[in-house]
Nucleic acid binder design. Structure first.
Lengths: 339, 339
DNA sequence: CGTTAAAATGTAACGGGTTTCATTTGGTCA
DNA sequence: TGACCAAATGAAACCCGTTACATTTTAACG
C-alpha cells in the first residue's frame, strides 16, 4: 500500500505539496500539480482515510442501535438513515441490539472510544453510561421512533396517542362499540401511548373502557395470531380489533380467516405502521401510515447538525401520520347497541 | 478527551507502562498497576480506538453491500452478519446500494482507503475497480446469496436450481400440468437458476416447456400482483403458480383471492425464501426455506478467516434448502390430462 | 556483600496524513 | 538591477496509541 511520502518522492516534492495538490489544487502551481497527479497514478496512491480520521478526530461514522433489523418498519427507517448519511458523507454502523441494554451499552462505547461521532437510538433507553452525561450539554445522540420524554438530545417521533385515537375513532364511526386492542410489548412507551389514544377515543365517544378487551402482544406475527385465538374463544366477541402494529394485525387476520370469519363483515381489523405487506393482505389492511424513511433521514440529519455544532438546543420533531382506510375495516355487523 | 499521556502523568509512570497495565496486566507490578488504574478512573480515560486501528492498519470494519435493506430476506441475512461479526469483534458498515454499480463502487473504495478490511457483496457483481484485482490473490470479499461464477473470492449460496426443481416437482406430483412461473429481475442469476430448475423438473416429468407460462417480475409484492392479473386474464389459466420469491407469491395470492379464486382449490401458489409473513398468509404459503441468517453468519465468518489469513483458497459453500409444504398448494383442480 | 539474571519500567520511533510556520522562488515596479 | 510582496514550497510538529530496545530495579544465590 503506497503512502503520501512515496508519492512525494516520486514527484520530487514534499509531502505537504502532495497533500495540498490533492486537497486544495489551486494552492499549488499547475506544473507541480501535474507532477503530483502523475506520481499518484504511477504508484496507485489512495489516501489512508483511517489516518485522516484519526488525525482529525472525526470518524464520520454513526452508530445505529436497532432492536431488530428483521422488523419491516425498522428496515424502512434504516433505509432512510442510510440515504441521509450518504448524502452528507457519513456512514452508518448498524447494531442489531435485540433491545438488550448491555449490547446497546457496548455499541454506545464506540462513541466514547472515538470510533463513531454519534449515535441513533430507536428505543426508549439511554445507552450511555454516566461518564458521558454532562449536565448542560447535549448527548451526541438522536432518539427516534420510540422516544424518551426526559432525554437530553433531539427526538424524532410521531404523536402515537393522536394516531391511535384517530384509528379508534374511525372504528367507532363505523358503528363498532366493542373494540379489542392487541398491545405491543409492555415495556415500550409506544404501547402506552397507543393505549392512551385508544382510551381517549372511547372517552370522547362516551364508550366505557373495558379492561377485558385488552390483549397482550409483542409486535410479532405470532403474537397477533395468539391474541386472535383468544379473541375468537371469548364470550362476547368484539366486532373490531385494533392492533398496535401491522405484523400483529396480519397475524390476527390469518387466524380469524382460518376460523371462518369474514373480514370486515364479521370482524374489522386495523393495524399501525403501514408496512408494505399491509396493502397486499386480503383484504388490504386499514392502518396508520408513518413516514418511516423520513424518520431515519430526519434523525441522521439532526444528529449531523448536532455533531457539527449547527444546533445547540434539542428539538422535538413530531412527524405526521396518516389514517389509511382500506378494506379490512367496515361497518359493525349488527348495530347491536346504538348508545 | 483524556489521553494516555495524561494518565501516565497522573500516575507518575511512562506511557508504555500505562499501555502495558491495560493490555497485559501481568507485565507490570501490582503496585504500579494499581496506581495506573486509579489514574485511569481519575481522568476517565477511554483509549482512542481510532488511533489503535490506524496504527495497526486493521479497522475491524466490514462493508456490506445490500441492494435493499427493506427486503425481508436480506434483513435476515444482515441480522446473521451482525451476529457473526459481533462475535469476532468486527462491525458491519451497512450500505444500501439499490443495486447501483456506482454506489457499490463508492463503498468498495472504503476497503482501498483503509476504512474497512473487507466487503460482503449480496449481488452478482464485482464492486472493485481493476486496481485491486491481483491475478493470484483473493479479493477481500465474500459473495453471498446471489453469486458470480467466476469470482476470485469465497462464495456462499444455495443450489437455487435444485430448489426450484424440487418445488416444481412437488407441484407436478400434485397433478399440475400447467405451471406458471413468475420470475425475478431479468439481470439476476437467481432468476436464471430458478428458471433452469423449473425446466429441469418439467423435462424430467416429460412435460413440455411453454414460454407463455413465464411472467416477468422483480421480487416485489406489486410485481406478483401484476403478474397474477395477467394470469387471471389469460386464456388457458394455469392451475399452479410458482413465484421466484415469497413477496411475489404474496402479491399474487392477494390478487387471486380478490378475483374470487380459492387457493389451492382453484390455483396453487408456491414461493421461495420462507420469509416470516409466508407462514401467516391465508392459506399459509408453500415455499423453499433458506437459512438466511446462516448465509450472513457464514459469509462474515469466511471473510474474517480470509482477512486473518486463515484460508488461502476460495471455498464455495452451498447451503441447504428445505421444501416447506403448506396449504397454498394442493391437488390440481381437475385431473384434465393424466399423461 | 557482590554478581547475575529476571522483572519492571522508561525512551523514543512509528504509522500517514494535515497544517503551521519558515523559507524559497518568481514576478513587478521603480 | 534591487527592493518588495505574493505565491509556491518545504520542514517539522502533531494526533495517540503500541512496541522494540535500553535502562533501572529487584531478587536470588554464592
Amino acid at each position: 500500500m503506497s503512502n503520501i511520502r512515496q508519492v512525494a518522492n516520486m514527484a520530487g516534492v514534499s509531502v505537504a505539496t502532495v497533500s495540498r495538490a490533492l486537497q486544495q489544487p489551486e494552492r499549488v502551481s499547475p506544473k507541480t500539480r501535474n507532477k503530483v497527479m502523475l506520481a499518484v497514478n504511477e504508484v496507485g496512491y489512495k489516501p489512508n482515510l483511517m489516518a485522516v480520521k484519526f488525525r482529525s478526530g472525526k470518524t464520520h461514522n454513526l452508530v445505529a442501535l436497532v432492536p431488530t433489523v428483521a422488523n419491516v418498519f425498522f428496515a424502512r427507517v434504516i433505509s432512510g438513515m442510510q440515504i441521509a448519511a450518504a448524502e452528507r458523507g457519513y456512514s452508518i454502523l448498524l447494531a442489531n441490539t435485540l433491545g438488550d441494554a448491555s449490547i446497546e451499552a457496548n455499541y454506545a462505547k464506540m462513541v466514547q472510544t472515538s470510533q463513531a461521532d454519534g449515535l441513533i437510538q430507536l428505543r426508549a433507553h439511554n445507552p450511555f453510561d454516566e461518564s458521558i452525561n454532562k449536565p448542560n450539554e447535549l448527548l451526541p445522540m438522536v432518539n427516534v421512533c420510540e422516544v424518551m420524554h426526559d432525554i437530553n438530545c433531539p427526538v424524532v417521533t410521531l404523536d402515537n396517542r393522536a394516531a391511535a385515537k384517530a384509528m379508534t375513532m374511525h372504528l367507532i364511526a363505523q358503528g363498532h362499540r366493542r373494540i379489542a386492542l392487541i398491545k405491543g410489548p409492555q415495556s415500550s412507551p409506544l404501547t402506552r401511548d397507543r393505549l392512551a389514544g385508544y382510551r381517549d377515543a372511547l372517552t370522547e365517544a362516551g364508550l366505557k373502557f373495558d379492561e377485558s378487551l385488552l390483549y397482550p402482544g409483542d409486535f410479532t406475527l405470532q403474537s397477533g395470531h395468539d391474541a386472535a385465538t383468544k379473541i375468537i374463544a371469548s364470550e362476547h366477541r368484539p366486532t373490531a380489533v385494533f392492533c398496535e402494529n401491522d405484523e400483529t394485525a396480519i397475524g390476527a387476520m390469518q387466524c380469524f380467516k382460518q376460523a371462518g370469519l369474514n373480514i370486515p363483515q364479521d370482524v374489522s381489523i386495523a393495524g399501525f405502521d403501514d408496512i408494505s405487506f399491509s396493502a397486499f393482505c386480503d383484504p388490504p389492511l386499514t392502518t396508520i401510515a408513518q413516514p418511516a424513511e423520513e424518520f431515519g433521514q430526519s434523525a441522521v440529519s439532526l444528529l449531523i447538525d448536532l455533531l457539527e455544532g449547527k444546533i445547540t438546543k434539542a428539538p422535538k420533531v413530531i412527524m405526521p401520520f396518516e389514517l389509511v382506510v382500506r378494506a379490512s375495516t367496515g361497518p359493525a355487523p349488527s348495530a347491536q347497541t346504538t348508545s
